[in-house]
Design a protein around this nucleic acid. Structure first.
Length: 422
DNA sequence: CATCCACAGGAAAACGCGGTTG
DNA sequence: CAACCGCGTTTTCCTGTGGATG
């Protein structure tokens, strides 16, 4: 009997909750807030709209001007594109090249472009490998273990299939780590001689002085042209964000001020469009959980939360040794409340390693780890000299209490996990 | 003023792993 | 199978460094 009342109340509860959730509904299409999860066609469609809004018009014009000689059969020089991350270099170039390729087909000019992605750091060998994959979409993936010359031979063979103009778009070219010269020499010097097609190199980097690190002799062979991508300014970002809002969110529930705030925050930092969209996504989720309206206050909240999540994620992603180092630092810091030195931290670290049955690293290596932790902002490491008592990094904490407790909890929680790992 | 501590940090060699080749 | 290759990681060895101290 009371059962009926009870379920009636529950039903009511469910109904009101559902209704309120419906009212709060802000995110209509979450896919548009995450570039990576967007299907290819949709992605290009979004990009198309961005370009239609004349956001990167200046840059597009410049690229196209550089390419147009091809239509008359002239050979443009290779191109070096600079620009900070998230300024739309890759996106713009791919857009231009693919449309240019289409146009060339109608004009019966032989033109093809291949995209070589070096986003994750690679050696010159890895770069060659990537190039080979880009050239030949077949399943064959060349693995490590074969000499470099042979690799180059295969690429030359592969390239013999192409005629006319072949444009190589090399993304994040600065990621070729130890000997970038080798790869670039091959590209700029060896290949044009041994291959029938006309090669146009486009290299993308976000390091302004990258070309100065290369051998000057290679640069003279390349006959390159430089091009600079300015970061998006706040107005551009507003346009981009508005586009996303239209696609993904219930527009009427988004404050104009909130968008402006996101754009301002992002442009103040680096002008990175990806970061702006990420913040928008975070803010939208936060808004949906509360009142369902995207306001400036929510943006503030989301920014704070995003930062916390980042450090959290950071810590979770650390390697074992790094984590151990971090733990030993904070362990020591919490006990002494005084400045500590690398040596002290190292002592604590070795004993901790003993406890975890992990072979401790050398102090030299430990010093590097401390350096990396400092770089990540998980620790403040300042180089000081204490006169006769030597020179040390003075280590102090830089994390809020919330993260700190979490570190200590992972220490105990993953202690067992550590031990099971051989 | 020279000394000397306790490390920083560069260079190079060594190691280990995952792969190919003959 | 041994020999070899590429490559990131780690160890070994090394030279600097800046100011309190005698």
């Amino acid at each position: 009997m009371s059962r009926g009342d009870h379920s009636e109340a529950s039903l009511q509860f469910i109904r009101t909750l559902h209704d309120s959730q419906k009212n709060h509904r802000l995110i209509l299409n979450p896919d548009y807030l995450d570039d990576e999860k967007l299907p290819e066609e949709e992605r290009t469609a979004v990009l198309q709209e961005i370009f239609d809004r004349n956001i990167r018009e200046e840059q597009l014009k410049r690229i196209i001007c550089h390419l147009t000689p091809i239509l008359d059969g002239d050979h443009p020089s290779s191109l070096l594109v600079f620009g900070p991350t998230g300024s739309g270099k890759t996106v713009s170039l791919i857009h231009v090249l693919s449309t240019f390729q289409q146009y060339c087909q109608t004009q019966s000019v032989e033109f093809q472009y291949k995209y070589v992605d070096l986003t994750s750091p690679r050696s010159s060998f890895g770069a060659l490998n990537e190039l080979a994959i880009a050239l030949n979409d077949s399943i064959r993936i060349y693995r490590k273990g074969i000499p470099v010359n042979q690799m180059q031979e295969r690429i030359i063979q592969e390239m013999n299939r192409f005629k006319g103009f072949l444009c190589l778009l090399i993304d994040e070219a600065d990621n070729i780590k130890p000997n970038a010269d080798e790869f670039i020499t091959f590209l700029g010097k060896t290949l044009p001689r041994k291959v029938p097609c006309r090669l146009v190199l486009i290299m993308v980097t976000n390091k302004l002085n990258w070309d100065k690190m290369l051998d000057p002799r290679i640069l003279s062979v390349l006959k390159k042209t430089n091009m600079l991508f300015e970061p998006y300014d706040a107005l551009d970002l507003i346009e981009i964000l508005k586009l996303r809002v239209e696609k993904a969110l219930e527009k009427s529930k988004v404050d104009e001020g909130a968008i402006r705030k996101i754009a301002a925050l992002a442009s103040r930092e680096t002008g990175d469009a990806r970061k702006a969209v990420e913040l928008l996504s975070k803010a939208a989720k936060a808004a949906q959980e509360t009142k369902g309206r995207l306001t400036e206050e929510i943006v503030d909240l989301a920014e704070h939360r995003l930062e916390m999540d980042k450090t959290d994620e950071m810590i979770r992603a650390l390697a074992r040794q790094q984590k151990l180092a971090l733990i030993s630092c904070y362990d020591l810091l919490s006990k002494t409340s005084k400045r500590i030195t690398t040596g002290e931290a190292y002592d604590r670290y070795t004993s901790l390693c003993d406890l975890e049955k992990v072979r401790p690293l050398t102090q030299r290596r430990f010093s590097d780890i401390i350096g990396s932790l400092d770089l990540y902002g998980l620790i403040n490491g300042r180089l000081i000299s204490r006169g006769r008592y030597g020179q040390t990094r003075e280590i102090s904490k830089s994390l809020p209490k919330e993260s700190l407790t979490r570190i200590l909890s992972t220490e105990s929680a993953e202690g067992g996990a550590f031990r099971t790992v051989p």
